[in-house]
Design a binder for these strands. Structure first.
Lengths: 212, 212, 212, 212
DNA sequence: TTTTAACCGAGACGGTACGTCACGTCTTGTG
DNA sequence: CACAAGACGTGACGTACCGTCTCGGTTAAAA
């Protein structure tokens, strides 16, 4: 057993303040967008002081990242349409919905934030499956059992491609309707998933898509 | 009688000012990064006044976009290694070099800018092939002639995937060395390119990758 | 003929802003006292921005000093009661009235300000006679003509003593009623004024009393 | 059983803390000047907490006043040059030295503090003689014995004038060298002291000079 | 040639947010 | 209880840019 903080001297931080501030951040981001969020407005809305905010976070990016990290969405129903193609479409639709509900600049902030703060990636990674950015193992397994994919198939191709492509399309405002998604699945995702290989994915275990 | 330019009375604009300002913009972006660029600093560096800048552009994004648009890089040597796989690697390496050399936030600004201003996409698209974000037709043709790809192959899979994936990896700071690039090519790009299909890409002709 | 400011480039300063700000300063000082005056409150009241204030003055002391300097009271009636003693009493009463009407800490600010800014002394010196801090030459001359003072008498003793003593008494809250003033005049000012001497006052021509 | 101090329950106050705090106050005043002293800096330097300070004093002025009051300077040698004029010069020189050594703004704070807190005046008055702001009775007595002053002479003229005049001169930065002091003594202080009068000084016994 | 209108630099202006600081109060844990 | 530590709301600080607006002074086409 370890005592990293043997005795936290002084008045302890008020967790309620932290919650109020992070809630205010999310509300502000939703209303005016990431770039237009100001610390002053967050402080006003949270009934907190700027000093309290700056005591805990270094600036806007830190703050927003913390707010998003703390905001864990509820569980989503598992995906199982009976075909791999149908499952992929549902996952992509979820991803599009997530991207559409979030201001683009917030995504950028998170992407950049995760470059600095590995913890951010860790935190978001847990929720990544929820967003559709990760191919659930169950979906992969069932596809293999149905014979739609070879036994050596991995989630790599989906994890690597789907999130990145849709993020960029969201940023540039390109359409992401079902026609497009179907084309993406048929001409890129499925061919890549079906590719037989015994290679293991290189580099760190976490994929770029994890930030969603 | 029509006066499309009714009558350009008064002192005409000084083209030299425009050049000086746009040069200053690029220098500032290179030094401090897109987000830290200020109109005032640009004006100071260019020896111009803020009024002159605001007379022509609406704000920072407009200004940066104009500067980048006006800045046409030199021609790059055509790609021809003798194999499709080799060509793809060279293209991806070029793309990585571009992403590494430019401030990441400038890319983001261009991405967002292109969502607003379709012209930006048009302008940059012309240079996209240079950066490796587009698969040159010559490369595709030679691959078909060598029998590496079916006759129906298109550049779509590369255009759609390569830029997006590498942009996002650059943002999150994930590694993009040759080992990684090779894996990307072998497990995703090549399988997708080899995929036989008579489908045409949906939606607008411009791909997300065009912004690079 | 000289052209010290050959061409004042840029938009010229708006004199009206300066007036509005200085008026606001005096109002604030009168309401809350020198120490409690804030630049922000002055800016609010004047309908100006802090930047405009800081563009012209370095801080609170500068600002208040400028406001007081610019505030030239109206002319006061000349003093002539028929006797030197009566004239001195009127002068001291005026001085007491001035000190009573002004917050003590404002006086301190002016005193300290004049140590830094000789111009302040110059400006206020012109009005010093008005406040009673200076013995008017006419009063001295008539006293000599009446035989109340020797022909060699100067204003030095009054100028040096009256202002200083009453300022300090004002600061410490000591009483300054007519009984006290009469005593001051009879036991200090008159004996010193009557003192025969051919010495000239040493040092700079301006007395400490000039700051009132 | 009686409890004049009803029942001093709990931990008693630590006298050492008080000393440490007051020492820190004086050190801070000496280093940065009265106006720049902050409670936080005092707490840091004293190794105390702000709560401990605010438990005992109401704010900066209180604190500084307490520190100065508790700081009793050592005894100075009595003044006796053999002539009244020489004694006065020594006293004035001491006063000038005091004013020059102490930050001017501390004097101001004490002046203003004494307006609010009569006790402050009482406390400081005891040390006033040391500074030269008061004419010691011994000096007066010897001058009378030598025939330099009439038997009815009092210390009033010196007490009233010397401190005030020199304080104000110190504030405005006017010179206070021996030439000036000699002139002050010859043309003002000595004539006023020699003035024959049976009047008693009016008002409270404490003079403005007592604050030094 | 003279007008005229726009361009250009400089920089004042009202704003707004920045990030820091000190205030005076409070809430902990430890003596 | 005293005390240190330090979080907290408050509010001012002085700075930096924003985007707009005058200025005096070009500059070139139109009159």
């Amino acid at each position: 057993m370890s005592f990293p903080n043997p005795s936290p001297r002084g008045r302890p931080r008020d967790g309620a303040r932290e919650s109020a501030i992070l809630d205010a951040v999310l509300a502000e981001v939703a209303e005016v967008g990431y770039e237009q969020v100001t610390i002053e407005a967050v402080a006003r809305r949270a009934g907190a002081s700027k000093a309290t905010i700056y005591r805990r976070w270094n600036g806007k990016r830190d703050l927003v990242v913390a707010a998003v990290s703390a905001h864990q969405g509820g569980e989503l129903a598992p995906v199982d349409t009976g075909t791999l193609r149908g499952d992929l479409l549902v996952l992509c639709q979820r991803l599009v919905a997530t991207l559409a509900s979030t201001h683009g600049s917030l995504i950028l902030a998170l992407l950049q934030g995760s470059a600095r703060d590995p913890q951010l990636g860790d935190l978001i990674e847990q929720g990544a499956g929820q967003t559709g950015a990760r191919l659930p193992d169950a979906v992969l397994r069932r596809a293999v059992e149905r014979g739609e994919l070879p036994a050596t198939a991995t989630t790599y191709a989906f994890d690597e491609v789907a999130g990145s492509v849709l993020i960029v399309r969201a940023l540039v405002g390109a359409p992401m309707d079902d026609t497009y998604l179907t084309h993406l699945i048929d001409t890129i995702l499925l061919p890549a998933l079906r590719h037989e290989s015994d290679e293991r994915p290189p580099g760190p275990a976490r994929f770029a898509s994890a930030v969603l």
